[in-house]
Each structure stands twice: as structure tokens, then as C-alpha cells.
């Protein structure tokens, strides 16, 4: 039997449509399970209180706060470093073996498994530089992990600013650095911020890099300085699920829900920031 082109087209469309539906199924399933089992655990105490009774009761506030600190620390370290590196690579670097080496290094850095970052952070920041297991060491480790993401996103954002803007500015006798500061960076900002937030939101959910560098098993108080250890949501979830006997599953799912919600909020923030700045952009 020979199918008419019209039917072939219909079949092709159905297959393509099915493939994209398959992508959203896991997302929906994960969210519905988390919400169904975790939502009953969420209340004011859960979000704002210290854990009690060996983490079997009370809240997860120190873990939420710890993850926030880590996210903040990662942004503070990785954003300037990544953007400056990207500006150098896009605007100043000549195409030579040095530049190519740096680019290869960035690609390879992106491919390093996260547990290796954890060991690297343990070796360099915790032991060699004597930061100890601390927010500082954890933030630095996470920063190195998200650096390739930020550099790549920033490079793309910078390259997408039309060359003609640079020429128009330079032709007025404006220096290259002023051109970058006043024309290139403002126009690349939405892309840079989006890339940064997406990179950092992934880092927020990572367990392996913080395992040896910052995460505390059980620490029912808030850190006082960047040299303190802190709890963090992903590690706390791991502990609740595997290390502590007789935990009410409600608490486990509630913790997972909070972590996912946090990452979701960060991603949403990236979209809002991009939309807001793009609204002001005039080309």
C-alpha cells in the first residue's frame, strides 16, 4: 500500500509532536509527585525553623539559608571573573595558540564531572589554602564549576552585539574600553545575566562539589562568617534519604520540593530579567 504525501506528512507531524510531548512527561511526573508528597510538609515552621530530633522534625531553614549563601557566593566570584574573561576573549584576544588553548580549557572544564570538582576544592581550598570546610571553599568550588557556563554564555552575548555598533563608537574617537563599557556590555547584559543565573541555578542543586568543601551533616544554627560550615539543601536531602533512619517521607519530599522550587525561581528570575532588559532594548 502506498501512502499519499498528505498522510506521510500527518504521520511525520504526529511522530515529531509525540517526541516533544515525551520531553515534558518526566517534568510533569516529577513535579506532581513532589507536590503530592511534599506539599503537606510545607508550612511556616518547615521553612523557618531549625531541624529538631536528629532532623526528623522541625524545619530546614539552615539548609535553605546555606544554599542561598552558596548561590550568592558563587555569583559574587564567578560573574565578574567569567564576564572579564569573556570580554578579553571576544574583544581583545588575537587568534593564536594561547587563545585556542584557553578555549579548549574552557570546553574541557565544562566536561569535568562534578565530584572531581569536589575533590579539587577539597585539595586546593580546604586543605592547601587552609580555608577549611567553609562557605568560602564551597562557593569557590562551585564558581569554578559554573565558570565555563558563564564564560560561554557571556562570549555568545558579546559576539551577538553587532560589529557596526563598535565601529560607530570607535569612529567618534571613543576608546576601545569605553566602547566596551558603554556600548557592548549594556547590550550584552541580558544574555550574560541569563547565562549566569542558569549556571548558578544548576550549581544550587549540586551535591558532589559541596560534599567535601562546605556541607555540614547536621548544624542547627546559621553560619557566622564565610569560614563557617553550613548546611545545604541538596546534601541535606541526601542525608535525609540515606543517612538518617526513620525519617517521615513527607520531610524528604518537602525538602526536595523546596530545592526544586528554589532552582525554578532562579530560572524564572533569569527569564524575567531578560524580558525586562529586552523590553528596553531598541534593536
Amino acid at each position: 500500500m502506498k501512502l499519499s504525501p498528505k498522510w506521510k506528512q500527518r504521520i511525520a507531524f504526529s511522530v515529531l509532536g509525540l517526541a516533544s510531548v515525551v520531553v515534558i512527561v518526566p517534568v510533569i511526573v516529577i513535579f506532581s509527585i513532589l507536590i503530592e508528597k511534599g506539599l503537606p510538609a510545607i508550612n511556616w515552621e518547615f521553612l523557618t525553623a531549625m531541624p529538631r530530633m536528629g532532623m526528623r522534625a522541625g524545619g530546614i531553614f539552615p539548609a535553605i539559608a546555606g544554599t542561598m549563601y552558596l548561590v550568592l557566593g558563587t555569583i559574587v566570584v564567578a560573574l565578574p571573573l567569567g564576564v572579564l574573561a569573556a570580554v578579553y576573549l571576544v574583544e581583545y584576544a588575537r587568534q593564536n595558540w594561547m587563545t585556542r588553548m584557553i578555549e579548549v580549557a574552557i570546553v574541557n572544564l565544562a566536561g569535568v564531572p562534578s565530584v572531581v570538582y569536589g575533590l579539587f576544592g577539597l585539595g586546593l581550598f580546604v586543605i592547601f589554602l587552609k580555608f577549611g570546610s567553609s562557605i568560602l571553599a564551597g562557593s569557590l568550588t562551585l564558581s569554578i564549576m559554573v565558570l565555563p557556563v558563564i564564560i560561554t554564555a557571556s562570549k555568545e552575548a558579546l559576539s551577538s552585539v553587532p560589529q557596526s555598533f563598535r565601529e560607530a563608537s570607535l569612529a567618534l574617537g571613543v576608546s576601545k574600553w569605553q566602547t566596551i563599557r558603554c556600548i557592548v556590555l549594556p547590550n550584552a547584559l541580558p544574555g550574560i545575566l541569563t547565562g549566569t543565573i542558569l549556571g548558578v541555578s544548576r550549581a544550587a542543586g549540586e551535591t558532589a562539589p559541596i560534599l567535601f568543601t562546605v556541607a555540614a551533616f547536621y548544624l542547627p544554627r546559621l553560619p557566622k562568617s564565610v569560614f563557617d560550615q553550613c548546611m545545604a539543601l541538596p546534601y541535606h536531602l541526601y542525608v535525609l534519604s540515606t543517612q538518617v533512619p526513620n525519617v517521615n517521607p513527607k520531610i524528604q519530599y518537602g525538602t526536595a520540593l523546596v530545592l526544586v522550587a528554589l532552582v525554578f525561581i532562579l530560572n524564572f528570575l533569569a527569564i524575567v530579567v531578560r524580558a525586562h532588559i529586552r523590553g528596553k532594548k531598541q534593536w
Binding site: 557596526s164 555598533f165 560607530a168 570607535l170 569612529a171 567618534l172 574617537g173 571613543v174 576608546s175 558603554c182
Partner: peptide
């Protein structure tokens, strides 16, 4: 930079910068 300030250039395609008319002139 000095020479470009003294010898300025107008390009084939109009290249306004993505900002207001006033800011373009004041740039």
C-alpha cells in the same frame, strides 16, 4: 583615538546606536 576625534567618519549604512536621539548625539 586622537586622530579619530579629529577625522570623523560617516558610514554607508546609517548606524544609530541603540539609545535615544539625544543620547546618540551626546555619546
Amino acid at each position: 583615538e586622537d586622530i579619530r576625534k579629529r577625522v570623523a567618519m560617516v558610514f554607508a549604512l546609517p548606524l544609530p546606536l541603540p539609545m535615544s536621539i539625544f543620547d546618540n548625539i551626546a555619546y
